[in-house]
């Protein structure tokens, strides 16, 4: 009697756990997984996105983008973007967080100030920079021009546009990294630090022997995430330059978006998207590998 009750209990519990998995499975399944499968299928078809007719054309979309210079330009820009983002904001954030943690100064104040740009919507930040910084009429650029400086908006020049956009995105992003690094730095064992200081270690030594090794797991995880996000980047580029001038800031996501929603070539756009995903998946592999230890074992 007791045994059957227990078995029934276990069955009830198992069922309950499966039921608990359902909301997330339903959400992700219908809005992420199903469209993902449809995208893979669409990349082998000619489809305008509206009509029901999808014509199977095999690998033609992939062949087309392989010979498309805009695709290669976009891919190069994604790589440049990645290199910029794994260095500039990471170094600034490391510097700021180590200073704050080491000298124990204004921990909360600095953290809050640095985080404000990160909390604002990309649309808000983009419009602010377009008008008050880059505008030749109302912005800092215009003000400096009238003061006699030889300066133009970096967004208007093909060779500097990507840097200009990256500057705004980095301005909004680095504070987030600082918060993450700071949280990791607070786990630094004080004993280690004190004994190193007693040994007369200078700033550089403290950084490379104590601080960096302690936050290295967090830093490497963030770098992998930055690589992944760099291949998905869209908001700031589209809002600031729409990929222009003359495709000079085009990245894979803006290219795929304009192929789909301006040229109505959904099939080709799907092929570009999947190539983007393929490259990102290499970084994804490292991400899973790095976080696997904690979540699975």
């Amino acid at each position: 009697m007791v045994r059957t009750r227990k078995r029934k209990d276990v069955r009830e519990r198992k069922l309950a756990y499966h039921l608990l998995s359902l909301p997330a499975i339903f959400l992700s399944g219908s809005i992420v997984l199903l469209p993902a499968i449809q995208t893979i299928f669409a990349s082998f078809t000619k489809w305008n996105g509206i009509s029901k007719a999808k014509v199977w054309i095999g690998l033609q979309n992939y062949q087309e983008i392989f010979h498309d210079w805009v695709f290669w330009k976009s891919l190069t820009n994604n790589i440049k973007w990645t290199i910029l983002f794994v260095t500039v904001p990471v170094i600034i954030a490391m510097l700021a967080s180590v200073f704050i943690a080491h000298y124990r100064i204004g921990h909360k104040t600095f953290q809050a100030i640095y985080l404000i740009p990160y909390l604002l919507a990309p649309t808000t930040n983009a419009i602010i920079w377009l008008n008050i910084i880059f505008s030749p009429n109302a912005g800092l650029v215009g003000f400096l021009q009238r003061a006699g400086w030889q300066i133009t908006s970096p967004l208007g020049n093909m060779s500097t546009a990507l840097l200009g956009v990256a500057m705004v995105d980095i301005w909004h992003y680095w504070g987030f990294l600082t918060v993450i690094f700071l949280a990791a730095l607070r786990q630094t064992p004080l004993d280690q630090l004190e004994s190193a200081q007693l040994d007369g270690a200078n700033g550089w030594k403290l950084f490379f022997k104590i601080y960096l090794p302690n936050i290295l797991p967090t830093v490497s995880l963030m770098i992998v995430l930055i690589v992944i996000y760099s291949f998905m980047t869209y908001d700031y580029i589209y809002l600031l330059t729409q990929g222009g001038p003359a495709h000079s800031t085009e990245v894979l996501s803006t290219y795929a978006y304009s192929l789909a929603f301006s040229a109505f070539k959904f099939g080709k756009a799907a092929a570009v998207s999947l190539s983007m995903g393929l490259i990102g998946s290499v970084a994804a592999y490292f991400y899973t590998w790095l976080s696997r230890k904690e979540a699975i074992e």
Binding site: V32, P35, A260, A283
Partner: peptide, 29 residues
């Protein structure tokens, strides 16, 4: 407590890393 935890963990870990905007076209239609 259920065996599905392992594939589910892997799935959601992968979903973090996939550029989701590439699935927006079918979502749109």
């Amino acid at each position: 407590r259920v065996k599905t935890w392992r594939p589910l963990t892997l799935y959601f870990m992968l979903a973090t890393t996939v550029p989701l905007q590439m699935f927006m076209l079918p979502l749109y239609s």
